[in-house]
Simulated scan of single mutants.
Amino acid sequence: MITAGLGVLLLLAATAALAVRYAPIPGHRTLYLVIASPYLMLAAPAAIVVLAWGRRWPLAGLACLLTAVLVAIQVPWFVRVTPDPSSVGVRVMTLNMLYGEADPADMVRVAEGSADILLAQELTPEAVQGLSAAGIQKEFPYRALDARPSSAGVGIYSRYPITYSTRIPGYMLAMVNARVRIPRITHDVSLLSVHLDAPWPRAIDGWHRDLAKLPSTVSEVAAQAGEGAVLIGGDFNSTIDMLPFRQLLANGYQDAARQAGSGRNFTYPANKRYPPVLGIDHVLTRNATAVSTETVEVKGTDHRALLTTIMVPTG
């Protein structure tokens, strides 16, 4: 009876992990459950072992079926997509700077060695000054910034000329759109530096509003870009297990980690004694294909930088 009870509890936990991936997130209780879902999924194979040990074969068979379903929905994130052979590699780095407190010298060091385009969130006026003092303009002479106090600012630094930039209103935090001209690429590449409102620990309403509005914004950016590539990066305050985030992957948009087959990129929190447990920083692509993603520590912030190499077609 003990093994049966434990096995059923494990089955229920894994079933909840599956169900919550396709459910709305009305409040914090559901939010915490979906955050925990990738770890709760591990209850399914554990249930197989427990139920088989107790010779509860029908329940063990159900646990096998549930495990297969959970594995199937994860597999696409580990299968690499082949890029267009006539493409140019563009390296994108996105980083939440924790109220602008990220160490500017370390941030510049990482960006200089790993990026052609830097998308910054929580960019304060003081952080802009710090990055300038650290020499960011040497390798990234072009910029489109909306620096604001506390957590509200964002910005784009680029090795490539910025041909257009604008601020996008209507969100809880700043959002900057720009286009860059890259050698050998026919159409200018559109960029968007994103920081959605946090769903916790404060009220979840701002997050709901931002996520409800973002699909129309990215669709507008896609329409303006036409056949050109679109690269969107930042702190989405959402994991791949959240249905509202996955709904962004439409109209040609793809998650870079899925295209690269690199699975989950855990970026938060990065300032604890334990490794990051959440992947809330993402890069989305359209008319382009990511071939690699990785995370890198930057001193002074609670996020790891997400580095992505994206192949952008020349035509």
Rank of each mutant, 00 (worst) to 15 (best):
P161A: 00
V194C: 10
D235P: 04
T239E: 15
L70S: 00
R286M: 13
A16M: 10
L123V: 00
L33C: 14
T308V: 14
L9K: 01
I48T: 09
I168Y: 11
V180N: 09
E112D: 11
Y142N: 06
S114V: 03
G54K: 05
A17C: 06
A222F: 04
W53A: 11
A43C: 07
L214A: 11
Y157H: 11
N271I: 07
Y268T: 00
W77K: 03
N265T: 00
Y142Q: 10
L211T: 00
R181Y: 07
H187P: 01
I168H: 04
V194Y: 12
R304H: 10
M107A: 11
T285V: 10
A16I: 01
I156Q: 12
A102W: 02
R202T: 06
R21P: 04
T15M: 05
E101W: 13
L248C: 08
L248T: 06
P183Q: 07
L278H: 01
Q224N: 15
A178E: 15
L306F: 06
L306N: 00
R91H: 12
T124W: 03
M107T: 13
Y164E: 04
S193G: 02
V34E: 15
G100C: 07
D146V: 08
L6P: 15
Y164G: 09
V110H: 10
A111R: 00
R184F: 15
G279N: 10
M107D: 07
H282R: 08
L231H: 04
Y39S: 15
V110P: 04
G54F: 05
L118F: 10
A133T: 04
I2Y: 11
V108W: 03
D106Y: 09
V50G: 07
V69Q: 09
N271P: 06
P276M: 10
D255W: 01
A23V: 08
V194H: 01
M175A: 13
R246E: 05
W53P: 03
Y22Q: 11
P183C: 09
A257C: 13
D146Y: 12
P275G: 00
D241V: 01
Y22T: 04
L231T: 08
N177Y: 05
I232M: 11
F245A: 02
G226C: 04
D146E: 14
A111N: 11
R179C: 05
I156R: 07
W207V: 06
M242W: 08
A111I: 00
H195N: 07
G234H: 01
R202G: 12
V154E: 03
E297F: 10
L31F: 12
A229G: 13
I35R: 08
Y268M: 07
N251A: 11
A144I: 13
R179G: 05
R246Y: 01
F140P: 02
I168D: 14
A198M: 05
G100F: 01
N96R: 06
L211V: 05
M242N: 08
Q224H: 10
A223V: 02
Y274H: 10
